[in-house]
């Protein structure tokens, strides 16, 4: 389940008012999520959640559900 906080960060970075984001949603399905915005989203997530990703962790994430799980695991630890 995608948290409201993550959804808010993504929508803010992409200048979207709303978009239905599910666990299985992939970047290419979200309007405006190009390679440059990808980096902006990752940086915004790191800043807003106060966490730091390893490069390989981001590469392994196949969809937004994986990104949520990664954030959750970082917050718990």
């Amino acid at each position: 389940m995608i948290s409201d906080k993550l959804k808010k960060v993504i929508l803010e970075q992409l200048n979207l008012s709303d978009f239905d984001i599910k666990d299985e949603t992939v970047a290419s399905q979200v309007p405006g999520w190009d390679s440059l915005n990808h980096i902006n989203i990752i940086l915004a997530v790191e800043k807003d959640f106060g966490i730091k990703f390893k490069g390989i962790e981001i590469l392994k994430a196949k969809n937004i559900g994986d990104l949520q799980k990664l954030i959750d695991s970082k917050i718990v630890n």
Partner: peptide, 15 residues
């Protein structure tokens, strides 16, 4: 993609 993520703090310059 790996390089872009590695250089992400540089934003546009990193890309």
């Amino acid at each position: 993609k790996p390089l872009q993520i590695k250089f992400r703090n540089m934003r546009m310059a990193g890309t």
